[in-house]
Amino acid sequence: MNIFRFLGDLSHLASIFILLHKIQTTRSCRGISFRTQALYVVVFIARYLDLFFRYVSLYNSAMKLFFIASSCYILYLMKIRYRPTHDPSIDTFRVEYLLAPCLILALIFNYKFNFAEVLWSFSIWLEAVAILPQLFMLQRTGEAENITTHYLAALGAYRALYIPNWIYRYFTEGLVDPIAVTAGIVQTGLYLDFFYVYFTKVLQGQKFELPA
């Protein structure tokens, strides 16, 4: 564990708490893509199934359980508790176009051709692109509540912070994880436009609005 990975994980945790806070205080999931949230459930379950056969640390297991539980809880909030506040007509990104290529990538790029490793690789690729329905929705509406943008910023910062972690691990442990690094760079790249608007507008006290 190094500081970059730890801060990345904290940022990931923070993003979930910000999202829960947004849903609970506004009693609404307006502006949040159900499809993106459902993809995260798939990502976490696919990757963290190793809870049953691999022990890394208490920290690692606790975080995995938290991410599985919180992502399922968010789906419950969106689909049942605050269902009327979710507008499916603007959440239309076709997730098949993400799932199928990720499955193919996982079958080609994996560290061992067995069920657990292919599933792991699939979850890594899927996580990289799972934010697309959310970004697509943002693009369509052209604006977002501040709290939603803080959620996205914390979520984007999480994988961005993993990049210095991988550089650090390369020099200190000689560890290279080409699949995670490639997907992580793609994932961070998808946020660049968002980060630009977030830093130049939201953090300057303006509303998050995309140019028409």
Binding site: D9, H12, R54, V56, M63, F67, Y111, V176, D177, A180
Partner: peptide, 10 residues
């Protein structure tokens, strides 16, 4: 080192 057996990241 090869990462295949570790997967110690979240």
């Amino acid at each position: 080192r090869h990462p295949s057996s570790t997967h110690d990241e979240l």
